[in-house]
């Protein structure tokens, strides 16, 4: 028996809102990175759910590419956080308020 599409959408909304919650409440750059990852994965859940809904594989293949892009984004993000720590001795995103220091 197939699970109805609404449940996938509610799960996706929950994951997305957890990510939004993390971004809104925390100021730690690593927490930001993890929260952005949750946002991306919520989109992936939607892609897979509608791929199943329409019986079309394109959404699932596209999800794989989204995951690869997320990996690239995290690699660059961690590099940026390393530079942030080196220059501000903190990874609090509210302290990095200037482009030059």
């Amino acid at each position: 028996m197939a699970i109805v599409t609404q449940y996938y959408l509610v799960l996706s909304a929950a994951v997305f809102c957890i990510g939004v919650y993390g971004i809104l409440t925390r100021s730690n750059a690593l927490m930001f990175l993890m929260s952005v990852e949750l946002l991306l994965n919520a989109a992936n859940i939607n892609l897979v759910a509608f791929s199943f809904y329409y019986g079309n594989l394109t959404g699932q293949v596209f999800t794989l590419f989204t995951m690869a892009l997320a990996a690239a984004e995290v690699a660059v993000g961690i590099g940026i956080i390393l530079v942030l720590y080196r220059n501000f001795e903190d990874i609090d995103v509210t302290k990095a308020a200037t482009m030059r220091w």
């Binding site: 197939a2 959408l9 509610v10 939004v20 809104l24 409440t25 199943f52 809904y53 329409y54």
Partner: peptide
């Protein structure tokens, strides 16, 4: 900052209400 977090909770409320009330056909699979 818990005050900002309530915005995310409200967003979840709106999204969940919309999705639960949406009409979907059975998935094709």
């Amino acid at each position: 900052n818990y005050a900002n977090g309530t915005a995310a909770l409200a967003l979840f409320g709106v999204l969940a209400w919309t999705f639960v009330n949406a009409d979907f056909l059975p998935p094709l699979g």
